[in-house]
Design a protein around this nucleic acid. Structure first.
Lengths: 154, 154
DNA sequence: TATTAATTTATAATTATTTTAAATTACAGA
DNA sequence: TCTGTAATTTAAAATAATTATAAATTAATA
């Protein structure tokens, strides 16, 4: 954890940004909740526990900055809210998501899966791919089991 | 065109929704600008040319409704605006997008491309895929050519 | 430790979208 | 063709998400 904070500190300094306590607290929240997909508001509420004086606007600015530095990825699952997702260290590409239409859960897929597709896009469309966003909407394992149970009992 | 309007009318009636002039005007705009990725505001301005009395809220409601009926797909490219994209007739899945980070242009890909990936997601993650959203961010052919020109002259 | 550019705060403004209640209207059925 | 009714629109206000502003503060270099 401290190691990653340190690296982020260096990334900030490299572009003459400062690591303020507010920014550090925000990064810590993101590291602690790496599995989640927090909205700015979510992050704000969690950061407040560490740094009660922080303002929501600061959280927004920090998340925007971390986004520029490719430390977090901003994503939107179709509700009107942006969510912020920490990029895995050393990951070249953004990971994928499985959004359950029944229960709303979000699962992450680290595997690339798109290598072949990107090659086709490059060669057939002449489009130079820099990043991607891939989200599957469907029914997660749990909800499938639930549905199966209901069918049996009824 | 009239044929598609008729089909949409039937889809509405099947769920006891009405085809009001406002809805028809909205659908016509979407059909005429099928290649584009219009925001609600964009649609509103275009619909106003056909039906000047229409309100923005009505456009939002209509787009929401068409979304539910799977006539349009709602998508978000990362600016804070939802965009509405007419589903091709008979298309099982939502098409993909190539968003140019230089000029902001958006190109569409009709080809499925994800069949294999979806099979893997189903078998390895037990996730039942119903739909997807795939967007590539990168540099379009034009902007690559522009960049190449600049390198030559300088 | 002094300087200065970067940052935060607090507040207000903006933008996107949704809600509400009253007035209107599409359309199934007489 | 007319009518009743549920669905819809309008107009306006409310809400939610995000961004901008100016004054006060502060991190980090020299």
């Amino acid at each position: 954890m401290e190691h990653r904070i340190d690296r982020i500190k260096k990334q900030l300094h490299a572009q003459s940004y400062k690591l303020t306590p507010q920014r550090e607290a925000t990064v810590r929240v993101l590291l602690e909740r790496e599995e989640d997909h927090l909205s700015a508001e979510d992050v704000y509420l969690l950061v407040k526990e560490k740094a009660p004086e922080i303002g929501l606007a600061t959280v927004y600015r920090t998340l925007e900055l971390l986004s520029e530095l490719k430390i977090v990825d901003k994503i939107n699952f179709g509700d009107g809210v942006s969510r912020y997702d920490l990029r895995k260290e050393g990951a070249a590409h953004f990971h994928h998501h499985l959004v359950c239409m029944e229960c709303g859960s979000v699962e992450e897929i680290e595997d690339d899966l798109l290598e072949d597709v990107e090659k086709i896009v490059q060669s057939d469309w002449g489009f130079q791919v820099k990043d991607h966003r891939l989200t599957f909407h469907g029914v997660c394992r749990n909800c499938q089991l639930e549905a199966a149970k209901k069918t049996q009992t009824s």
